[in-house]
């Protein structure tokens, strides 16, 4: 364990009468990636901005490595790489100069800058643009430079607010690779996102908030085990259209199936209490019943089921 930590104590933010974040108590430590999940407007950015002293809490306090952000932002942020709200970089600077600025302000020795800066620019695939002015870059390119800026001093803690914002699909995949790389090197990553596959893909733990309230914070495995007590749905496509009689006789009667929904003549959605073995058994059953299955896939990930059920409960 790295011993690094991110903590919020009773963190609250009000905008006028509106409570954007309501007494958030969260303590994250060790080396892992924690996904900070929630729908738009849930309070993710608000939380991250208070963790970096961009916003002031209405009450409560934040700590990075035990140092109060509100009392000493300078020291608290030394351990962090920060990317919040897709910032802009001074347009006349090049990515290399912008990263030099960050490295200078963070005291990265010049000799080390000579190695780190090209390396992180390569990491975010911006080497070819290293000496062009940022002013004319696209949103995605700027975001890549922003990611590089958060990594340039090789920080033990990363606070990332929807880092994949503005990136193309390949860029999103690259961000995931970067985060996975950070995990391998035992960094502590706190990353907000509303992209569930991204979270499932790279995070070890998830914290879910909605309407400024924390719904849960646990490991991904525990979360899916604890909250998906309902059902998993599986979408199945067939070569031939199925009649109602076929559905009743050959599908609904299979053990493990709770409910069947016919989406269109060649497509069914099956509900099952779940488990991989159960699903495999159902697939075998369909085939032995003589049905030609084209595809068989969970319609939502386990996290998505949890997410949707938890979010809708709050509304």
């Amino acid at each position: 364990m790295g011993g690094h930590s991110i903590e919020t104590r009773h963190l609250t933010k009000q905008f006028g009468k509106f409570v954007a974040l309501d007494a958030l108590d969260l303590r994250i430590e060790g080396s892992k990636c924690v996904g900070f999940l929630g729908p738009n407007g849930a309070g993710k950015t608000t939380t991250l901005k208070m963790l970096t002293d961009m916003l002031f809490p209405s009450s409560g306090e934040c700590f990075l490595d035990g140092i109060s952000v509100q009392k000493d932002r300078k020291r608290a942020l030394e351990a962090c790489g920060v990317l919040i709200e897709s910032p802009e970089i001074y347009p006349s600077l090049t990515p290399r100069q912008a990263l030099e600025m960050v490295a200078d302000l963070r005291n990265v020795p010049v000799a080390e800058q000579k190695i780190r800066i090209p390396a992180v620019l390569e990491e975010v695939k911006m080497s070819d643009w290293a000496d062009k002015k940022v002013g004319k870059f696209s949103k995605g390119m700027k975001q890549r430079v922003n990611i590089a800026a958060a990594l340039v001093h090789d920080p033990p803690i990363l606070l990332l607010d929807e880092p994949a914002t503005g990136l193309d699909p390949r860029g999103m995949a690259e961000v995931r690779d970067i985060v996975r790389g950070l995990k391998k090197r035992n960094r502590l990553v706190f990353m907000s996102s509303h992209i569930l596959p991204e979270v499932t893909d790279v995070c070890d733990e998830v914290a879910l908030i909605n309407h400024g309230k924390l719904l849960f914070y646990d490991t991904l495995d525990n979360v899916t085990a604890k909250f998906s007590h309902g059902q998993i749905s599986v979408d199945v496509n067939f070569v031939h259209p199925l009649s109602d009689a076929d559905v009743a006789a050959k599908v609904a009667s299979l053990p493990g199936i709770v409910r069947v929904e016919q989406l269109d003549p060649r497509r069914l959605r099956l509900y099952t209490p779940g488990g991989p073995e159960e699903e495999a058994k159902i697939l075998r059953g369909l085939i032995s019943a003589g049905l030609d299955v084209v595809s068989f896939q969970e319609s939502k990930s386990a996290l998505e089921e949890v997410y949707l059920s938890q979010i809708s409960r709050g509304d």
């Binding site: 364990m1 030394e78 390396a119 990491e123 001093h153 033990p156 790389g181």
Partner: peptide, 23 residues
Amino acid sequence: MGATIPASGVSVPEGTTPALTSP
């Protein structure tokens, strides 16, 4: 970030990387 990138500072064990002191 792969192992291709040299870590900052002298060889400190992974995960215990000390934060750089700012100027």
